[in-house]
Nucleic acid binder design. Structure first.
Lengths: 207, 207
DNA sequence: GTATAGGGGAACGTACGATTCCGTTCTACG
DNA sequence: CGTAGAACGGAATCGTACGTTCCCCTATAC
């Protein structure tokens, strides 16, 4: 089952994957970078999306849908309340949805559907939050908005490769969770801290 | 005591202040934005700095010196060990030195002096860190590099005006401190969480 | 009154990047 | 086989944004 149709279908996925990777790494990246990363030409992109803005809207929408999906899954979790909440936090961090939504918003004019999904996502997140507070596992003086900003802070971490970045985000998520959880206490932090090499690399030009 | 000399001296300060404000808000800002913010013409800038890069190096160097100064002050603090460490953290966040150093590095080729100051800053920070650990007030499984990344996460917060941004950074610093401090425990968070308006404003274009 | 430092801001030159366009390849099908 | 056309690759085009330079004006200093 090969042929141009199959190739095209494969490119659909290839392009979206590349776009996600490129724009989460750098929201201002040129569209040519996406094409290169996907291993296709520019026209393969423009055949699918009429403009860069359209592509960004698609990515942002997908990110929002992923966010909603993860949140709904957390709401369906009937196990230990803290574990449900913690799993939710880890899921959002893994999905890198903050990079796909906030970071891309503002770089284009939002559609009406985006607004609706965003509102829905916000509702669901609030529900998850309140459950955790009601169960007495989440400190009550933080709000869902606080958690949203926490996600953004974690998304701002970019160090080394994709793998290492993910490790570090989880490390600082774990640290934050120590401050979030009731009763207070320190749990072991995952992964290992940044090395001097990690940090000093950023002083060198041409990243 | 007026005259062109005085005007020039005033402009020196005006320009540096404007540059700091503009580039911490947006490291990629055009140089014209600095001139506009300072209320001077472009040539007033170029009379003082031969290029944009030179200006950025100056800002970065100043940021590093500020960092060093704050850290040395913390080392001189002989009071309660936790309060000394906490004051240090708050000082760095207030100085916004992360924005002045890391965020600007990489946008220009670093000088040799910058490298030296950076190394010195790192040493001092490590000393502050170890003191806090030795005093038993800072959890021992976090490293100075962890703290550096924590500063960067806080610096990534930008919401509302300068004032509000500072409040929020301190709010999340306080949260992080709850996870950092030995013995574990929750302290009251400063300021108030982001409002819906705060968050939704970012979905609107033209920030 | 004149030389000159200090400045304002338009003009220049360049690089970058979204979009368009043209020629090519591979299928499907007569 | 021969040809129409979808799907591409990638060079050419067209703006625009921004660093830097230049020209001319103003207000001191002497």
């Amino acid at each position: 089952m090969s042929g141009r149709k199959a190739q095209a279908a494969r490119n659909d996925e290839l392009i979206l994957r590349a776009a996600r990777a490129v724009f989460t790494a750098d929201p201002g990246a040129p569209i040519a970078a996406v094409a290169e990363r996907a291993g296709v030409g520019i026209s393969a992109l423009y055949r699918r999306y009429p403009s860069k803005e359209a592509l960004l809207q698609k990515l942002c929408g997908d990110g929002l849908k992923l966010y909603i999906e993860i949140t709904e899954r957390a709401l369906a979790d009937d196990g230990d309340p803290w574990e449900a909440f913690a799993g939710y936090l880890r899921g959002i961090v893994d999905g890198d949805t903050s990079s796909l939504t906030i970071k891309l918003a503002g770089t284009f004019t939002p559609t009406e559907e985006l607004g609706r999904d965003s509102a829905r996502a916000s509702e669901l997140a609030t529900e998850v939050h309140h459950r955790a507070v009601a169960a007495g596992v989440l400190r009550p003086d933080v709000t869902p908005a606080d958690i949203a900003l926490l996600f953004e802070q974690l998304a701002s971490i970019k160090l080394g490769g994709e793998e290492r970045t993910s490790e570090l985000r989880h490390r600082y998520l774990a640290l934050a969770m120590d401050a979030l959880r009731v009763p207070p206490g320190h749990r072991e932090l995952p992964s290992h801290p940044p090395t001097d090499e990690d940090l000093s690399a950023r002083w060198r030009p041409a990243s």
